[in-house]
Amino acid sequence: MKPFLKLTASAATALIFLSGANPSFARAPQAAATADAAAQSAPTASWPEFSGYKRYHGNCSVCHGFDGLGGTFAPNLTKSLKTLDHDAFMEVLVNGRQNGNLAMPAFGADPNVMCFAEDIYTYLKARSDDKLGRGRPSPQPKKPADVAAAENACLGL
């Protein structure tokens, strides 16, 4: 069990990009993933976008709704990301947020989210920018070979 991390935006960002510093938070190599996806026949989404779609719907959609469109108790992220920049997004993701009877959990200590934080951001940004539509991106981009091992290492599985 890890203690909840209290981090500032810059520290959070540093953590995300500090692959290798803490093996349990080493994120999947994004650049390689993008290159692989681009080599496929007309994928609608890059690997990070697709991975983000999956992880978003595994961890976030219960409150934020399918496809980032919001629920009755958490905001529509396709709107939020029009004003919330990358660092501010990461700050909220890591530290959580309280606003009256609304509360966003702090995911800073949760590898299920932090290992894919960049992917989730990438996916939501693409949704916010109308680059990606609703539903599961299809055809599915190919998962780069090195990603699976990196995911398992990050998740500690």
Binding site: K54, D110, N112, L155
Partner: peptide, 23 residues
């Protein structure tokens, strides 16, 4: 629904779900 199981690690106080659903 469509249901896709994914690996998930247990962290006390964090969601322990490991599935991706559409309805």
């Amino acid at each position: 629904m469509n249901y896709e199981p994914t690996k998930v690690a247990y962290v006390a106080g964090s969601p322990y779900v490991g599935a991706n659903l559409t309805m």
